[in-house]
Design a binder for these strands. Structure first.
Lengths: 201, 201
DNA sequence: GTATTTAGGTAATGATCACTCAATAAATGT
DNA sequence: ACATTTATTGAGTGATCATTACCTAAATAC
């Protein structure tokens, strides 16, 4: 074993835990949006001094971008786990809908979605805009893929094109995050998911 | 005729056109969010000096609230017209879905939805938060009402409760605004609407 | 050892932030 | 005419904004 890539980094090692910093940034940006969160607030929440923050992330959008990438990775991990344990395409979609109902309820719902927050200010981003667009299209493709699986395994019978179904599901997922942030995703959540699944018939 | 309420106002008349000011504010806040728009930007766009703006609206949230109220009134007007000309409940829902597809496409889609922008920063609002919550619940009730009408006239056959259907439709409408802002509401829009209407079957 | 590299910490940058105040202007009421 | 009311204007408020420069600290490389 040559342990490639494990060689010691050159300068002084980082003292702060990047994962913690990004998680705090995720929470702040999710609940208030990019512009509403100041560097002061970020330094207070992360306990990382402003100089270190700028050395590590160049600027505010750089920090936002890294937080967004971590947010996406975490969510995609959750989703992969849900997809893996479901027995067919329809069950996978049902699992995703249930996940987003949960994400859009209670405290987590009020916190909000970093993707939605980012899209709200997408016009002012350079690099972060690419991340947002990329994630939207990857999510759309993933949904279309699952719909195709469901059509193949017989659990999804709609004659609609997988891309159209995926578009509608994508819209539903992010719509839940908006409505849930305002605590307006109320009522029988099982009935809500069952109803949404009708677009697969 | 006594022309009640038409008596001349007491002091110096307003020089600026409030409708124009609010429309500019709607555009700015919709596309960037509340915190991202500065007073400077608002004075430049409206050509109203900062002092006059503050005399008229007290503070930035006051201006945002008035803009939001106008935005809601305009949209509800559009919606009322669409509902009035449709022959049954299902056609009314179809009309609303088509409206939001249009709102979520092209330049208007990129501009974004002021409701969604407001919800994104709802935690920092006092008065504006009530407007947002109120509009969400009124829209939810309107949707449930139209679904009930469709059930009564036979054009909507689902056994799901109108409230659940309304919740799903509400989620779809705002989801379209999010996805549309990122220019990701693509593909066959007629097929999209047809598919969404399946939740009424 | 010394040089190099990277991070931490702090004070300070100019710009912009939301907001206020006092003076002036233009209308109505009596 | 004169008092009252409301709007306009523009300078000025302190606070906060994102960002940088500079010095020190801690690691590796030679």
């Amino acid at each position: 074993m040559s342990d490639v890539g494990t060689d010691k980094p050159r300068g002084r090692p980082r003292l702060f835990d990047e994962v913690v910093v990004l998680d705090r940034a995720i929470d702040l940006f999710s609940s208030s949006g990019f512009s509403a969160v100041g560097i002061n607030e970020l330094t207070r929440a992360t306990r990382v001094k402003v100089g270190s923050l700028y050395k590590a992330y160049q600027d505010k959008e750089g920090l936002f971008s890294k937080a967004l990438e971590r947010y996406i990775a975490l969510r995609e991990g959750e989703i992969a786990a849900i997809l893996a344990q479901a027995e067919n395409g329809r069950a996978r979609i049902a699992g995703l809908l249930r996940l987003y109902v949960r994400l859009s309820s209670g405290k987590e719902g009020r916190l909000g979605c970093l993707m939605v927050a980012g899209i709200g200010e997408i016009s002012k981003f350079s690099f972060a805009g690419n991340i947002l667009h990329g994630q939207l299209s990857r999510r759309q493709m993933l949904l279309a893929d699952v719909v195709s699986q469901g059509k193949a395994d017989g659990s999804i019978t709609t004659v609609a094109e997988p891309n159209v179904v995926a578009n509608l599901l994508l819209t539903l997922l992010y719509g839940m995050r908006v409505v849930g942030k305002a605590e307006a995703l109320i009522g029988d959540t099982d009935a809500f998911v069952d109803l949404a699944l009708k677009v697969l018939d």
